[in-house]
Every structure is written in structure tokens, then in C-alpha cells.
Nucleic acid binder design. Structure first.
Lengths: 148, 148
DNA sequence: ATGGTGTGTTACCGTGCTTGGTACACACGA
DNA sequence: TCGTGTGTACCAAGCACGGTAACACACCAT
């Protein structure tokens, strides 16, 4: 499986909650429970997509490149995934067969429609929404502890 | 990538167009351009999902288990794919981090919504629709040839 | 200036999944 | 009883992903 999307949203949520302070790949790796190099690779993709920037040197780290409520989950998905939930035939189907020579075009239409439906749903949520969700859950967790 | 979904729809379209005649895995493999064993493996999954049946022995082969207009692409997708377009974190995020311990629950909601949107779109098309598309494209191809 | 810090990038390896391909037992029809 | 075709097990090759280490470069503080 591909966990990059989940980790990318995780990373961006961390950046949002850091409110302007650069966050190091090592700190992020500690939260994600992986190693800093992998985080830097992911940050590289996010930076290329214009979602994050980085400050080098002491006190450096990663930052959001634009407000969290202007980063949709679709932006994230496109940044770290190839955006092809379905795979087409590996070998070209037999062009001598009436079905073989037409099936891919017929399929592509339907696959595109399904992918677009998924992407439209992803576009309805922003990193700010997810971050707010996380904060809300954290508050609930806190009050549950308090009443114990 | 995973080409099983594409191949499965291809196979079911072939079965639909054979109108009740059993189709051998060798014939199917010829149209898909792969080998019969792979086709039989796929047919096994489709049979377990109740979409196809098989006749053993001479004159045997695969058949649709129910009318093509009662088999949606979602049925096919569920039969041959694990139905998880997004992967979650491989390792559990750090429970000592306020984001780490809440991000997965927040993510799951959004991923589910996106997956449901995709599945709803897949459910709108049946194997009969795809087969009709293929036939339509084939007719157009024929008339284009005729006017050449 | 100089040392320390943290990024960006590359290379490499192990793992797991998918597919290609072979083989063989079993069921069914002629 | 023989031939046909399925169902299944098995192995090899290819590939993507994640884990890991290494290193050059940029930047800050002293």
C-alpha cells in the first residue's frame, strides 16, 4: 500500500499547528514514527507542489507555503500520489478482438468519472479542517481525562 | 500497479457478448493478451463473488452468473480489489503527540468519504453498459472503415 | 571566519505485491 | 475410457514502497 497521502496530511497538520514556527524533519519523524530522511523526501514533493517551504540552517525546518485553509486534500493527494486509483491493462489487449480493441477506451471513461468523483470529495476538505478536527478530538480526550 | 479491475471488466464484457456460450480461459487470455492461468485466477475471484460460474470438462468455460445489467462496476471492483484506494500509516503514529494520536481518526473520516464517492460513481455503471459502449465503438469503427 | 545545525538529494537494500509461467489433480462430456 | 478445461499450488521476475545511511550545501550564532 501507499501511505504517503496519510503521512503528508499528518505532516501538514503538524505544520499548521506550529503557527509559523519552522518544524524540523526530525521532530516530524518523531510524531509520524518514521525516520527524518523519509520525511524530507515527502517534504520535497510537497515543496515542489508549492504547499510547503523550508528554511535551511540552525532554527530551520519546514513551513506551510500558504494558509492551511487554502490547501485542499486534493492538492495533497496530487502532490504525493500519481492520481491513478485504477491500473489499465499491462499489455495492450488483442486488437484483432472486437472487445479487445475497444475495451480500454470504454473503461477509461468510467475510470475517469470515478476518479473525478473521488477527487471532488477530497477537494471539499482543507488541511485547516483536518487540523481543527484533530484539535477537537484532543480537547475531547482532555475532558474525558479530567472527568475520570 | 494493479490491472485486475481492468482485466476483470474486460473478461465480463467478453462473457456478456458470448450470450450464454461458455468461454474458455484460453480464448479469454487471447483477447486480454495474457496467459490462461492468470485468467483462471481472476475467474476464481469473480466466481467467489458470485459474478461468474464455470462449466468443467469438454465444451466448458466461464459464464455470467447473473444478467450483465445486474453486475455493477462496483461489484467487480470489490471482487478483485481490496477496496482501499488510500493507505494508512504503516507504523502507528506517536501516541505522545497531540497530532499523532488523533490524525488517523480524523483522516479515516475523509478517506471513507472519498472512497464512498468513488464507489457510488462505479455503482452507476453496469457490465451491460460497458458492453454496449464496446459494441457502439465497434460499429463506429466499422462504418469508418466502410466510408474509407 | 568558523563550527554547528538542518535541509535536499542520492544510493542502496529488504519486503511485499502483482504478474508470467509451469504443472498437476480433478471434474465433466463424448 | 479418453480428452478437454478448470481450479490451484508453486516458483521466478519485476517493481513500488519504505527504511537507512551518507554527503554536499545553505544558513545561523558566536
Amino acid at each position: 500500500m501507499n501511505s504517503r497521502f496519510a503521512v503528508a496530511v499528518h505532516v501538514l497538520t503538524l505544520l499548521e499547528q506550529s503557527r509559523g514556527e519552522p518544524v524540523t524533519s526530525e521532530y516530524i519523524a518523531g510524531s509520524v514514527n518514521t525516520n527524518p530522511s523519509l520525511v524530507r523526501r515527502l517534504l520535497g514533493m510537497l515543496a515542489r507542489a508549492g504547499l510547503t517551504t523550508s528554511q535551511l540552517g540552525t532554527g530551520g525546518g519546514a513551513l506551510l507555503a500558504r494558509p492551511a485553509d487554502e490547501i485542499t486534500l486534493l492538492d495533497v493527494y496530487r502532490a504525493v500520489d500519481d492520481g491513478a486509483p485504477f491500473g489499465m491493462h499491462r499489455e495492450r489487449p488483442n486488437p484483432a478482438c472486437p472487445v479487445g480493441r475497444n475495451i480500454q477506451a470504454a473503461l477509461e471513461t468510467r475510470m475517469d468519472a470515478a476518479a473525478r468523483a473521488m477527487e471532488a470529495e477530497l477537494a471539499r476538505t482543507t488541511v485547516a479542517d483536518v487540523s481543527a478536527d484533530v484539535r477537537r478530538k484532543e480537547r475531547r480526550r482532555g475532558s474525558a481525562l479530567a472527568t475520570r
